[in-house]
Design a protein around this nucleic acid. Structure first.
Length: 502
RNA sequence: GGGCCGGUAGCUCAGUCGGUAGAGCAUUUGACUUUUAAUCAAAGGGUCGCGGGUUCGAGUCCCGCCCGGCUCACCA
Protein backbone atom coordinates (compact mmCIF):
# COMPACT_ATOMS: atom_id res chain seq x y z
CA UNK A 1 0.00 0.00 0.00
CA UNK A 2 1.42 3.34 -1.00
CA UNK A 3 1.87 6.03 1.60
CA UNK A 4 -0.84 8.16 0.12
CA UNK A 5 -3.32 5.28 0.22
CA UNK A 6 -2.25 4.57 3.77
CA UNK A 7 -2.92 8.19 4.78
CA UNK A 8 -6.25 8.04 2.99
CA UNK A 9 -7.18 4.86 4.85
CA UNK A 10 -6.13 6.32 8.20
CA UNK A 11 -8.24 9.39 7.68
CA UNK A 12 -11.21 7.43 6.43
CA UNK A 13 -10.92 5.36 9.62
CA UNK A 14 -10.76 8.54 11.68
CA UNK A 15 -14.05 9.65 10.12
CA UNK A 16 -15.66 6.48 11.46
CA UNK A 17 -14.26 7.08 14.92
CA UNK A 18 -15.36 10.70 14.92
CA UNK A 19 -18.84 9.59 13.90
CA UNK A 20 -18.83 7.01 16.69
CA UNK A 21 -18.15 9.82 19.15
CA UNK A 22 -21.43 11.38 18.07
CA UNK A 23 -20.14 14.05 15.69
CA UNK A 24 -21.34 14.50 12.14
CA UNK A 25 -18.41 13.54 9.90
CA UNK A 26 -19.31 16.40 7.61
CA UNK A 27 -21.04 19.03 9.66
CA UNK A 28 -23.70 21.53 8.77
CA UNK A 29 -24.12 25.20 9.39
CA UNK A 30 -22.06 26.72 12.17
CA UNK A 31 -22.95 30.11 13.60
CA UNK A 32 -19.67 31.63 14.65
CA UNK A 33 -19.61 34.66 16.89
CA UNK A 34 -16.56 36.19 15.20
CA UNK A 35 -14.37 35.50 12.23
CA UNK A 36 -10.73 35.03 13.10
CA UNK A 37 -9.72 38.32 11.45
CA UNK A 38 -12.42 40.05 13.52
CA UNK A 39 -11.01 38.63 16.73
CA UNK A 40 -7.50 39.70 15.79
CA UNK A 41 -8.75 43.17 14.89
CA UNK A 42 -10.81 43.63 18.04
CA UNK A 43 -8.74 41.93 20.74
CA UNK A 44 -5.08 41.98 19.70
CA UNK A 45 -4.38 44.94 21.94
CA UNK A 46 -5.87 43.43 25.09
CA UNK A 47 -3.58 42.26 27.88
CA UNK A 48 -3.77 38.90 29.59
CA UNK A 49 -5.03 40.57 32.78
CA UNK A 50 -7.76 42.37 30.86
CA UNK A 51 -8.85 39.14 29.15
CA UNK A 52 -8.95 37.40 32.53
CA UNK A 53 -10.87 40.16 34.26
CA UNK A 54 -13.33 40.72 31.42
CA UNK A 55 -13.82 37.25 30.04
CA UNK A 56 -14.72 37.22 26.31
CA UNK A 57 -16.49 34.14 24.97
CA UNK A 58 -16.09 33.32 21.30
CA UNK A 59 -17.24 30.73 18.78
CA UNK A 60 -14.79 30.42 15.93
CA UNK A 61 -14.22 28.06 13.03
CA UNK A 62 -11.54 27.37 10.49
CA UNK A 63 -9.09 24.95 8.97
CA UNK A 64 -6.49 23.39 11.25
CA UNK A 65 -3.03 24.57 10.19
CA UNK A 66 -0.93 23.31 13.11
CA UNK A 67 -1.32 20.76 15.87
CA UNK A 68 0.98 20.46 18.88
CA UNK A 69 -0.21 17.75 21.25
CA UNK A 70 1.34 17.29 24.66
CA UNK A 71 -0.13 14.47 26.65
CA UNK A 72 -3.18 15.91 28.33
CA UNK A 73 -3.31 19.23 26.45
CA UNK A 74 -2.49 20.69 23.10
CA UNK A 75 -2.43 23.70 20.84
CA UNK A 76 -3.63 24.22 17.29
CA UNK A 77 -3.91 27.12 14.93
CA UNK A 78 -7.16 27.61 13.06
CA UNK A 79 -7.02 29.57 9.81
CA UNK A 80 -9.90 31.56 8.40
CA UNK A 81 -9.91 34.27 5.74
CA UNK A 82 -6.15 34.45 5.64
CA UNK A 83 -5.62 34.86 9.38
CA UNK A 84 -4.79 32.39 12.13
CA UNK A 85 -5.76 32.11 15.76
CA UNK A 86 -4.40 29.64 18.28
CA UNK A 87 -6.67 27.41 20.34
CA UNK A 88 -5.70 25.62 23.55
CA UNK A 89 -7.42 22.33 24.30
CA UNK A 90 -6.92 20.98 27.80
CA UNK A 91 -8.20 17.59 28.87
CA UNK A 92 -9.80 18.91 32.07
CA UNK A 93 -11.41 21.88 30.29
CA UNK A 94 -13.47 20.00 27.70
CA UNK A 95 -15.72 16.97 27.71
CA UNK A 96 -14.17 13.53 27.35
CA UNK A 97 -15.78 13.21 23.93
CA UNK A 98 -14.31 16.52 22.76
CA UNK A 99 -10.85 15.55 23.96
CA UNK A 100 -11.08 12.26 22.10
CA UNK A 101 -12.08 14.24 19.02
CA UNK A 102 -9.04 16.45 19.47
CA UNK A 103 -6.84 13.36 19.43
CA UNK A 104 -8.37 12.32 16.09
CA UNK A 105 -7.88 15.63 14.28
CA UNK A 106 -5.56 15.98 11.30
CA UNK A 107 -3.91 18.99 9.78
CA UNK A 108 -6.40 20.37 7.28
CA UNK A 109 -9.59 19.34 9.10
CA UNK A 110 -12.21 22.03 9.52
CA UNK A 111 -13.56 22.48 13.02
CA UNK A 112 -15.20 24.99 15.30
CA UNK A 113 -14.06 25.85 18.79
CA UNK A 114 -15.94 27.58 21.58
CA UNK A 115 -14.32 29.08 24.64
CA UNK A 116 -12.82 32.28 25.94
CA UNK A 117 -9.91 34.45 24.94
CA UNK A 118 -6.69 34.42 26.96
CA UNK A 119 -2.99 34.99 26.51
CA UNK A 120 -0.53 32.13 26.77
CA UNK A 121 2.66 32.27 28.77
CA UNK A 122 4.47 33.50 25.67
CA UNK A 123 1.80 36.15 25.13
CA UNK A 124 -0.08 34.78 22.14
CA UNK A 125 -3.78 35.59 21.97
CA UNK A 126 -5.56 32.22 22.06
CA UNK A 127 -8.92 30.58 22.69
CA UNK A 128 -9.20 28.47 25.84
CA UNK A 129 -11.47 25.80 24.42
CA UNK A 130 -14.51 24.53 26.28
CA UNK A 131 -16.25 22.81 23.36
CA UNK A 132 -15.25 21.48 19.94
CA UNK A 133 -17.44 20.95 16.88
CA UNK A 134 -16.37 18.87 13.92
CA UNK A 135 -17.19 20.30 10.49
CA UNK A 136 -15.20 18.56 7.75
CA UNK A 137 -12.44 15.99 7.31
CA UNK A 138 -9.49 16.21 4.98
CA UNK A 139 -8.64 12.91 3.34
CA UNK A 140 -5.50 14.18 1.65
CA UNK A 141 -2.37 15.66 3.24
CA UNK A 142 -1.83 19.37 3.50
CA UNK A 143 1.29 20.90 1.93
CA UNK A 144 4.38 21.16 4.10
CA UNK A 145 3.85 23.88 6.68
CA UNK A 146 7.15 25.70 6.39
CA UNK A 147 7.84 25.91 2.65
CA UNK A 148 4.25 25.61 1.43
CA UNK A 149 3.87 24.80 -2.25
CA UNK A 150 6.98 25.55 -4.27
CA UNK A 151 5.97 23.63 -7.37
CA UNK A 152 4.36 26.27 -9.61
CA UNK A 153 2.54 23.64 -11.62
CA UNK A 154 0.84 22.42 -8.46
CA UNK A 155 -0.01 25.99 -7.52
CA UNK A 156 -1.71 26.61 -10.86
CA UNK A 157 -3.47 23.26 -11.13
CA UNK A 158 -4.62 23.04 -7.51
CA UNK A 159 -5.08 26.70 -6.71
CA UNK A 160 -7.12 25.80 -3.62
CA UNK A 161 -4.01 24.25 -2.09
CA UNK A 162 -1.98 27.31 -3.01
CA UNK A 163 -4.59 29.49 -1.31
CA UNK A 164 -4.53 27.30 1.81
CA UNK A 165 -0.76 27.21 1.99
CA UNK A 166 0.35 30.68 0.93
CA UNK A 167 -1.18 33.87 2.30
CA UNK A 168 0.73 35.86 -0.37
CA UNK A 169 -1.19 34.13 -3.11
CA UNK A 170 -4.47 34.83 -1.37
CA UNK A 171 -3.41 38.47 -1.11
CA UNK A 172 -2.76 38.68 -4.86
CA UNK A 173 -6.33 37.69 -5.62
CA UNK A 174 -7.74 40.02 -2.99
CA UNK A 175 -5.79 42.83 -4.63
CA UNK A 176 -7.10 41.77 -8.02
CA UNK A 177 -10.64 42.04 -6.66
CA UNK A 178 -9.84 45.51 -5.35
CA UNK A 179 -8.58 46.59 -8.76
CA UNK A 180 -11.83 45.55 -10.38
CA UNK A 181 -13.96 47.03 -7.58
CA UNK A 182 -12.05 50.30 -7.86
CA UNK A 183 -12.69 50.59 -11.59
CA UNK A 184 -16.37 49.81 -11.08
CA UNK A 185 -16.69 52.37 -8.32
CA UNK A 186 -14.94 55.10 -10.29
CA UNK A 187 -16.87 54.46 -13.48
CA UNK A 188 -20.22 54.14 -11.71
CA UNK A 189 -19.52 57.43 -9.92
CA UNK A 190 -19.13 59.11 -13.30
CA UNK A 191 -22.40 57.83 -14.67
CA UNK A 192 -21.10 54.84 -16.65
CA UNK A 193 -23.47 51.88 -17.02
CA UNK A 194 -22.07 48.36 -16.76
CA UNK A 195 -23.30 46.09 -19.54
CA UNK A 196 -22.67 42.59 -20.85
CA UNK A 197 -22.33 42.00 -24.57
CA UNK A 198 -21.96 38.73 -26.49
CA UNK A 199 -18.93 36.58 -25.89
CA UNK A 200 -20.05 34.23 -28.66
CA UNK A 201 -20.08 36.23 -31.86
CA UNK A 202 -20.86 35.36 -35.49
CA UNK A 203 -18.12 37.77 -36.58
CA UNK A 204 -15.14 38.67 -34.44
CA UNK A 205 -13.65 42.12 -34.30
CA UNK A 206 -12.43 45.03 -32.24
CA UNK A 207 -8.84 43.85 -32.14
CA UNK A 208 -6.16 42.20 -34.25
CA UNK A 209 -6.07 38.57 -33.13
CA UNK A 210 -6.91 35.02 -34.11
CA UNK A 211 -10.12 33.74 -32.51
CA UNK A 212 -11.34 30.51 -30.96
CA UNK A 213 -14.13 28.89 -32.95
CA UNK A 214 -17.10 27.04 -31.55
CA UNK A 215 -20.39 25.69 -32.87
CA UNK A 216 -24.03 26.02 -31.92
CA UNK A 217 -25.80 22.74 -32.62
CA UNK A 218 -29.45 23.76 -32.94
CA UNK A 219 -28.77 26.80 -35.07
CA UNK A 220 -25.99 24.90 -36.83
CA UNK A 221 -23.73 27.91 -37.01
CA UNK A 222 -20.09 28.47 -36.20
CA UNK A 223 -19.44 31.16 -33.64
CA UNK A 224 -16.29 32.88 -32.45
CA UNK A 225 -15.36 33.55 -28.86
CA UNK A 226 -14.92 37.27 -28.79
CA UNK A 227 -11.50 38.83 -29.12
CA UNK A 228 -12.94 42.15 -27.87
CA UNK A 229 -16.35 43.60 -26.92
CA UNK A 230 -15.61 46.85 -28.72
CA UNK A 231 -18.00 46.76 -31.65
CA UNK A 232 -20.98 45.81 -29.47
CA UNK A 233 -20.23 48.50 -26.92
CA UNK A 234 -20.13 51.10 -29.67
CA UNK A 235 -23.49 49.87 -30.99
CA UNK A 236 -24.77 50.73 -27.52
CA UNK A 237 -23.34 54.22 -27.81
CA UNK A 238 -25.24 54.56 -31.11
CA UNK A 239 -28.31 53.51 -29.13
CA UNK A 240 -27.85 56.36 -26.70
CA UNK A 241 -26.05 54.62 -23.86
CA UNK A 242 -23.53 57.42 -23.73
CA UNK A 243 -21.30 55.97 -21.04
CA UNK A 244 -20.96 52.18 -20.97
CA UNK A 245 -18.40 49.74 -19.72
CA UNK A 246 -17.84 46.04 -19.54
CA UNK A 247 -15.39 44.05 -17.45
CA UNK A 248 -15.03 40.52 -18.69
CA UNK A 249 -13.07 37.96 -20.61
CA UNK A 250 -11.63 38.16 -24.10
CA UNK A 251 -10.31 35.08 -25.86
CA UNK A 252 -7.40 35.11 -28.25
CA UNK A 253 -6.13 31.96 -29.88
CA UNK A 254 -2.48 32.83 -29.65
CA UNK A 255 0.65 32.10 -27.72
CA UNK A 256 0.91 31.60 -23.99
CA UNK A 257 3.59 33.48 -22.08
CA UNK A 258 4.23 35.27 -18.81
CA UNK A 259 2.21 38.14 -20.29
CA UNK A 260 -0.43 36.24 -22.28
CA UNK A 261 -3.18 33.88 -21.25
CA UNK A 262 -5.65 32.70 -23.92
CA UNK A 263 -8.51 34.13 -21.88
CA UNK A 264 -7.88 37.41 -20.15
CA UNK A 265 -9.92 40.12 -18.53
CA UNK A 266 -10.38 43.56 -20.03
CA UNK A 267 -12.14 46.65 -18.88
CA UNK A 268 -13.55 48.49 -21.88
CA UNK A 269 -15.39 51.75 -21.54
CA UNK A 270 -16.88 54.25 -23.97
CA UNK A 271 -17.78 57.85 -23.34
CA UNK A 272 -19.75 59.86 -25.90
CA UNK A 273 -18.75 63.42 -26.67
CA UNK A 274 -15.15 63.11 -25.53
CA UNK A 275 -11.98 62.29 -27.45
CA UNK A 276 -8.63 60.67 -26.84
CA UNK A 277 -7.27 63.69 -25.05
CA UNK A 278 -10.16 63.60 -22.63
CA UNK A 279 -9.45 59.91 -22.12
CA UNK A 280 -5.75 60.55 -21.45
CA UNK A 281 -6.62 62.79 -18.53
CA UNK A 282 -9.32 60.38 -17.35
CA UNK A 283 -6.92 57.41 -17.60
CA UNK A 284 -4.38 59.12 -15.39
CA UNK A 285 -7.03 59.76 -12.74
CA UNK A 286 -8.41 56.21 -13.04
CA UNK A 287 -5.06 54.47 -12.77
CA UNK A 288 -3.84 56.67 -9.96
CA UNK A 289 -6.95 55.96 -7.90
CA UNK A 290 -6.93 52.25 -8.74
CA UNK A 291 -3.33 51.92 -7.59
CA UNK A 292 -4.26 53.67 -4.36
CA UNK A 293 -7.36 51.54 -3.82
CA UNK A 294 -5.46 48.32 -4.54
CA UNK A 295 -2.17 48.96 -2.75
CA UNK A 296 -2.65 52.09 -0.64
CA UNK A 297 -0.32 54.20 -2.76
CA UNK A 298 0.18 55.33 -6.37
CA UNK A 299 3.83 54.34 -5.97
CA UNK A 300 4.47 50.64 -6.38
CA UNK A 301 7.51 48.44 -6.73
CA UNK A 302 7.56 46.00 -9.63
CA UNK A 303 10.54 43.64 -9.82
CA UNK A 304 12.77 46.09 -7.95
CA UNK A 305 11.71 49.05 -10.04
CA UNK A 306 9.76 51.98 -8.65
CA UNK A 307 6.64 52.88 -10.64
CA UNK A 308 4.52 55.94 -9.95
CA UNK A 309 0.95 55.99 -11.21
CA UNK A 310 0.51 59.57 -10.03
CA UNK A 311 3.08 60.74 -12.59
CA UNK A 312 2.22 59.13 -15.91
CA UNK A 313 4.46 60.47 -18.67
CA UNK A 314 3.34 61.15 -22.24
CA UNK A 315 5.16 60.87 -25.59
CA UNK A 316 3.97 60.66 -29.16
CA UNK A 317 5.04 57.43 -30.80
CA UNK A 318 7.57 59.34 -32.91
CA UNK A 319 8.98 61.09 -29.82
CA UNK A 320 9.28 57.76 -28.02
CA UNK A 321 11.36 56.28 -30.84
CA UNK A 322 13.76 59.23 -30.57
CA UNK A 323 13.74 59.26 -26.76
CA UNK A 324 14.49 55.56 -26.35
CA UNK A 325 16.78 55.04 -29.33
CA UNK A 326 19.51 52.72 -28.02
CA UNK A 327 22.65 54.61 -29.08
CA UNK A 328 23.14 58.35 -29.31
CA UNK A 329 25.36 58.23 -32.40
CA UNK A 330 22.60 56.99 -34.69
CA UNK A 331 19.72 58.61 -32.83
CA UNK A 332 17.11 59.79 -35.38
CA UNK A 333 15.87 63.36 -35.66
CA UNK A 334 12.23 64.43 -35.73
CA UNK A 335 12.44 64.62 -39.53
CA UNK A 336 13.67 61.01 -39.71
CA UNK A 337 10.80 59.47 -37.79
CA UNK A 338 8.38 61.41 -40.02
CA UNK A 339 10.13 60.27 -43.21
CA UNK A 340 8.63 57.15 -44.84
CA UNK A 341 11.93 56.25 -46.49
CA UNK A 342 13.83 56.40 -43.21
CA UNK A 343 11.14 54.31 -41.47
CA UNK A 344 11.01 51.69 -44.21
CA UNK A 345 14.79 51.42 -44.21
CA UNK A 346 14.71 50.59 -40.50
CA UNK A 347 12.01 47.93 -40.67
CA UNK A 348 10.90 45.01 -42.77
CA UNK A 349 7.29 46.21 -42.82
CA UNK A 350 5.74 47.34 -46.08
CA UNK A 351 4.13 50.65 -45.05
CA UNK A 352 5.57 53.60 -43.21
CA UNK A 353 2.97 53.37 -40.45
CA UNK A 354 3.52 49.68 -39.79
CA UNK A 355 7.27 50.34 -39.84
CA UNK A 356 6.97 53.10 -37.24
CA UNK A 357 4.99 50.80 -34.94
CA UNK A 358 7.47 47.98 -35.45
CA UNK A 359 10.42 50.26 -34.67
CA UNK A 360 8.63 51.66 -31.64
CA UNK A 361 7.88 48.20 -30.27
CA UNK A 362 11.48 47.18 -30.78
CA UNK A 363 13.32 50.18 -29.36
CA UNK A 364 10.92 51.85 -26.95
CA UNK A 365 8.32 49.40 -25.58
CA UNK A 366 10.67 47.31 -23.41
CA UNK A 367 12.01 50.51 -21.85
CA UNK A 368 8.63 51.90 -20.86
CA UNK A 369 8.93 50.87 -17.23
CA UNK A 370 7.40 54.02 -15.78
CA UNK A 371 3.69 54.32 -16.54
CA UNK A 372 3.67 56.08 -19.90
CA UNK A 373 1.11 57.16 -22.44
CA UNK A 374 2.19 56.82 -26.06
CA UNK A 375 -0.13 58.71 -28.43
CA UNK A 376 -0.71 59.25 -32.15
CA UNK A 377 -0.69 55.85 -33.86
CA UNK A 378 -0.41 55.24 -37.62
CA UNK A 379 -3.70 54.70 -39.40
CA UNK A 380 -2.70 51.30 -40.85
CA UNK A 381 -2.65 49.60 -37.48
CA UNK A 382 -5.72 51.39 -36.11
CA UNK A 383 -8.74 50.41 -38.19
CA UNK A 384 -11.32 51.69 -35.71
CA UNK A 385 -9.71 54.96 -34.65
CA UNK A 386 -10.44 58.45 -35.95
CA UNK A 387 -7.79 60.10 -38.06
CA UNK A 388 -5.98 63.10 -36.68
CA UNK A 389 -7.33 66.33 -38.16
CA UNK A 390 -3.85 67.65 -38.87
CA UNK A 391 -2.37 64.44 -40.33
CA UNK A 392 -4.52 61.74 -41.93
CA UNK A 393 -1.64 59.22 -41.72
CA UNK A 394 -2.17 59.16 -37.95
CA UNK A 395 -5.05 58.49 -35.62
CA UNK A 396 -6.06 60.02 -32.32
CA UNK A 397 -5.08 56.95 -30.38
CA UNK A 398 -2.90 56.17 -27.38
CA UNK A 399 -1.69 53.18 -25.46
CA UNK A 400 -0.65 53.00 -21.83
CA UNK A 401 2.55 51.17 -20.99
CA UNK A 402 4.03 50.17 -17.67
CA UNK A 403 6.74 47.70 -16.67
CA UNK A 404 7.48 47.25 -20.38
CA UNK A 405 3.98 45.95 -21.06
CA UNK A 406 0.98 47.38 -22.83
CA UNK A 407 -1.77 47.74 -20.26
CA UNK A 408 -4.22 50.03 -22.06
CA UNK A 409 -5.37 51.12 -25.49
CA UNK A 410 -7.67 54.02 -26.27
CA UNK A 411 -8.78 56.27 -29.09
CA UNK A 412 -11.21 58.71 -30.47
CA UNK A 413 -13.67 56.38 -32.14
CA UNK A 414 -14.13 56.56 -35.85
CA UNK A 415 -17.77 57.56 -36.33
CA UNK A 416 -17.94 58.20 -40.08
CA UNK A 417 -19.45 55.10 -41.68
CA UNK A 418 -18.02 55.91 -45.08
CA UNK A 419 -14.51 56.11 -43.64
CA UNK A 420 -15.15 52.99 -41.55
CA UNK A 421 -16.10 51.12 -44.72
CA UNK A 422 -12.83 52.22 -46.34
CA UNK A 423 -10.87 51.07 -43.29
CA UNK A 424 -12.54 47.68 -43.33
CA UNK A 425 -11.65 47.36 -47.01
CA UNK A 426 -8.07 48.30 -46.22
CA UNK A 427 -8.07 45.53 -43.61
CA UNK A 428 -9.54 43.06 -46.09
CA UNK A 429 -6.68 43.90 -48.44
CA UNK A 430 -4.19 43.21 -45.63
CA UNK A 431 -5.97 39.94 -44.97
CA UNK A 432 -5.58 38.99 -48.63
CA UNK A 433 -1.86 39.72 -48.32
CA UNK A 434 -1.78 37.06 -45.63
CA UNK A 435 -2.40 38.98 -42.41
CA UNK A 436 -4.61 36.54 -40.52
CA UNK A 437 -5.26 39.08 -37.82
CA UNK A 438 -6.55 41.83 -40.07
CA UNK A 439 -10.05 42.97 -39.25
CA UNK A 440 -13.14 41.45 -40.84
CA UNK A 441 -15.85 43.47 -42.58
CA UNK A 442 -18.70 43.89 -40.10
CA UNK A 443 -21.73 45.12 -41.98
CA UNK A 444 -24.05 45.19 -38.99
CA UNK A 445 -21.58 47.47 -37.26
CA UNK A 446 -21.39 49.67 -40.37
CA UNK A 447 -25.18 49.80 -40.41
CA UNK A 448 -25.27 50.85 -36.76
CA UNK A 449 -22.77 53.59 -37.46
CA UNK A 450 -24.85 54.71 -40.43
CA UNK A 451 -27.58 55.68 -37.98
CA UNK A 452 -25.18 58.23 -36.52
CA UNK A 453 -22.74 57.65 -33.71
CA UNK A 454 -21.86 60.58 -31.49
CA UNK A 455 -18.18 61.52 -31.27
CA UNK A 456 -16.88 59.07 -28.70
CA UNK A 457 -13.74 58.12 -26.84
CA UNK A 458 -13.17 54.45 -26.02
CA UNK A 459 -10.57 52.63 -23.96
CA UNK A 460 -9.54 49.16 -22.90
CA UNK A 461 -7.43 48.33 -19.85
CA UNK A 462 -5.89 44.90 -19.29
CA UNK A 463 -6.90 43.88 -15.79
CA UNK A 464 -4.52 40.94 -15.56
CA UNK A 465 -1.41 42.91 -16.50
CA UNK A 466 -2.33 45.84 -14.31
CA UNK A 467 -2.86 43.39 -11.45
CA UNK A 468 0.57 41.86 -12.14
CA UNK A 469 2.12 45.28 -11.68
CA UNK A 470 0.10 46.12 -8.57
CA UNK A 471 0.88 42.76 -6.94
CA UNK A 472 4.51 42.54 -8.08
CA UNK A 473 3.77 39.29 -9.93
CA UNK A 474 6.19 38.07 -12.55
CA UNK A 475 3.75 35.96 -14.54
CA UNK A 476 0.18 36.53 -15.68
CA UNK A 477 -0.55 33.02 -14.39
CA UNK A 478 0.12 34.28 -10.88
CA UNK A 479 -2.83 36.68 -11.12
CA UNK A 480 -5.27 34.31 -12.87
CA UNK A 481 -6.83 31.83 -10.45
CA UNK A 482 -6.97 28.98 -12.94
CA UNK A 483 -4.61 29.72 -15.85
CA UNK A 484 -4.87 27.53 -18.93
CA UNK A 485 -2.64 24.44 -18.67
CA UNK A 486 -2.52 21.22 -20.57
CA UNK A 487 -4.64 18.50 -18.95
CA UNK A 488 -2.59 16.58 -16.42
CA UNK A 489 -3.87 13.09 -17.23
CA UNK A 490 -5.19 10.43 -14.90
CA UNK A 491 -5.71 11.64 -11.32
CA UNK A 492 -7.21 8.44 -9.93
CA UNK A 493 -8.94 9.89 -6.89
CA UNK A 494 -12.34 8.49 -7.85
CA UNK A 495 -10.93 4.98 -7.92
CA UNK A 496 -9.19 5.48 -4.58
CA UNK A 497 -12.32 6.83 -2.96
CA UNK A 498 -14.31 3.94 -4.40
CA UNK A 499 -11.87 1.54 -2.81
CA UNK A 500 -12.59 3.12 0.57
CA UNK A 501 -16.36 3.01 0.16
CA UNK A 502 -17.66 0.18 2.37
C1' G B 1 7.14 26.02 -32.70
C1' G B 2 12.94 26.81 -31.25
C1' G B 3 16.64 27.05 -27.16
C1' C B 4 17.77 26.27 -21.96
C1' C B 5 16.24 24.20 -17.16
C1' G B 6 13.31 20.92 -14.20
C1' G B 7 9.97 16.30 -12.75
C1' U B 8 13.02 11.36 -6.70
C1' A B 9 8.08 9.60 -0.33
C1' G B 10 1.70 13.33 0.70
C1' C B 11 4.96 18.23 0.82
C1' U B 12 10.13 20.63 0.62
C1' C B 13 14.57 18.80 -1.16
C1' A B 14 19.60 15.78 -1.29
C1' G B 15 21.43 11.69 -4.19
C1' U B 16 29.24 11.93 -5.61
C1' C B 17 32.48 8.18 -10.65
C1' G B 18 26.86 3.80 -13.07
C1' G B 19 27.16 -0.46 -7.67
C1' U B 20 21.37 -2.27 -1.93
C1' A B 21 17.04 5.04 -2.69
C1' G B 22 18.16 9.38 1.75
C1' A B 23 16.84 13.82 5.09
C1' G B 24 13.28 17.34 7.18
C1' C B 25 8.05 18.15 7.59
C1' A B 26 3.74 15.09 7.51
C1' U B 27 1.97 9.90 9.17
C1' U B 28 1.88 5.71 13.10
C1' U B 29 3.27 4.19 18.37
C1' G B 30 5.05 5.82 23.25
C1' A B 31 6.31 10.15 26.92
C1' C B 32 4.81 15.13 28.05
C1' U B 33 -1.47 20.03 31.16
C1' U B 34 0.99 27.27 28.31
C1' U B 35 3.28 24.96 23.14
C1' U B 36 4.37 27.72 18.76
C1' A B 37 9.02 25.19 12.57
C1' A B 38 7.14 22.21 20.34
C1' U B 39 10.61 18.44 22.26
C1' C B 40 12.35 13.27 23.11
C1' A B 41 12.29 7.84 21.61
C1' A B 42 10.93 4.33 17.89
C1' A B 43 8.41 2.70 13.30
C1' G B 44 6.14 2.60 8.52
C1' G B 45 6.11 4.89 3.75
C1' G B 46 9.21 4.96 -3.32
C1' U B 47 5.80 3.30 -10.76
C1' C B 48 13.04 7.91 -9.09
C1' G B 49 7.36 11.59 -15.05
C1' C B 50 6.44 7.50 -19.15
C1' G B 51 8.62 4.08 -22.83
C1' G B 52 12.79 2.08 -25.14
C1' G B 53 18.27 1.35 -25.38
C1' U B 54 23.52 0.66 -23.57
C1' U B 55 25.49 -2.24 -19.39
C1' C B 56 26.85 -7.82 -15.27
C1' G B 57 24.23 -3.64 -13.02
C1' A B 58 20.68 2.76 -14.61
C1' G B 59 17.53 7.76 -10.21
C1' U B 60 22.46 8.52 -12.64
C1' C B 61 24.54 7.46 -19.54
C1' C B 62 21.84 7.52 -24.71
C1' C B 63 17.08 8.01 -27.72
C1' G B 64 11.83 9.10 -27.98
C1' C B 65 7.54 10.92 -25.59
C1' C B 66 4.51 13.50 -21.55
C1' C B 67 4.00 17.66 -18.04
C1' G B 68 5.87 22.28 -16.20
C1' G B 69 9.16 26.77 -15.84
C1' C B 70 12.18 30.52 -18.19
C1' U B 71 13.31 32.57 -22.85
C1' C B 72 12.84 33.68 -28.22
C1' A B 73 9.15 34.00 -32.02
C1' C B 74 3.73 35.63 -32.09
C1' C B 75 0.45 38.64 -29.37
C1' A B 76 -2.52 42.43 -25.46
Amino acid sequence: MSLEDELLRQRADAIGKIEALGFLPYGNRYDYSHTIPEILADHSERTGEDLEANRTSVRICGRIHTIRRMGKAGFSHLAQNGAQLQIYVRKDAVSEKDYELYQLLDLGDIIAAEGYLFRTRTGELSVHVEKLVFLAKTLLSMPEKWHGIEDVELRYRQRYLDLIASPESRQVFLTRAKVIASFRRQLDARGFVEVETPMMQPLYGGAAARPFTTHHNTLDIDLYLRIAPELYLKRLVVGGMERVYEINRNFRNEGVSTQHNPEFTMLEFYQAYTDYEGLMDFSCELLNQTAIDATGSPKVTYLDQALDFSAIQRFTMREAVIEYWPDSASRPMADNVADPDWLLSHSSKSTAGEALVEIFERVAEPKLIQPTIIYRYPVETSPLSKQSLDDPAFTDRFEIYAAGMEIGNAYTELNDPQEQRRRFQMQLAMRERGDEEAHQMDEDYLRAMSYGMPPTGGEGIGIDRLTMILTNSRSIRDVILFPLLRPEGEIGIAERLRALDP
